[in-house]
């Protein structure tokens, strides 16, 4: 038996002296690649770390990027794709070219994600915003895709340039996804 009471350490990471800060660059808009940044960022904020998400708004269509709506997954060229029931049997890459396969793979992946009680991408952004994660949209992709501020999820704090991001990310650990 220990003499003193053993208590877990709950140091608030975002406060000095720890001051831990994380910046995640979310460069991809497909469903399978939208999630890693969201999951990591959400875990980090739950650990008391200051989190900034830099969203690049890239997707395979006008409304398929994380800050706007439901992204999709495209099996074409994605060699990691397989059906969950048959982990050793990869999905033939060419199947991704067949009309309807993207839709099928997307709805299947969404269902698997929902089965784990993981939120959809828009719900996830809302959850993170409420948790205090800072959401930033990339100026260049915003301009390229001819978006308006009204198109963005309201939790996005601002549309920022690459140099703005450098200022925000000062002293942060950076993850590029």
């Amino acid at each position: 038996m220990t003499e003193t009471t053993l208590v877990p350490s709950f140091t608030d990471e975002a406060k000095p002296p720890a001051g831990r800060k994380l910046a995640i660059i979310c460069s991809k808009g497909n469903l399978d690649m939208a999630y890693p940044g969201l999951i990591l960022g959400n875990a980090a904020v739950g650990e008391g770390i200051e989190v900034h998400l830099f969203l690049h708004l890239l997707g395979d269509g006008h409304d398929h990027h994380p800050a706007l709506a439901q992204p999709q997954v495209q099996p074409l060229g994605n060699t990691a794709m397989h059906l969950p029931q048959a982990p050793t049997m990869p999905l033939p890459a060419l199947m991704g070219a067949i009309p309807g396969v993207t839709k099928f793979a997307t709805s299947m992946m969404r269902k698997q994600i929902a089965d784990l009680d993981v939120p959809t991408v828009p719900e996830f952004l809302e959850l993170m915003h409420e948790s205090g994660v800072h959401l930033w949209a990339c100026r260049m992709s915003f301009d390229m895709m001819q978006l308006n501020e009204a198109d963005l999820y309201e939790g996005v704090e601002a549309v920022i340039s690459a140099s703005d991001f450098m200022e925000i990310a000062e002293g942060a650990q950076v993850i590029f996804i």
Binding site: P8, F10, T11, D12, E13, A14, K15, G46, E47, G48, L127, E130, S131, G132
Partner: peptide, 18 residues
Amino acid sequence: IKELFTLFPGKPAKKMAY
């Protein structure tokens, strides 16, 4: 979610569990 972060600040999930 906001409320949970207010009630158990910093690391809410772990503090709640503890």
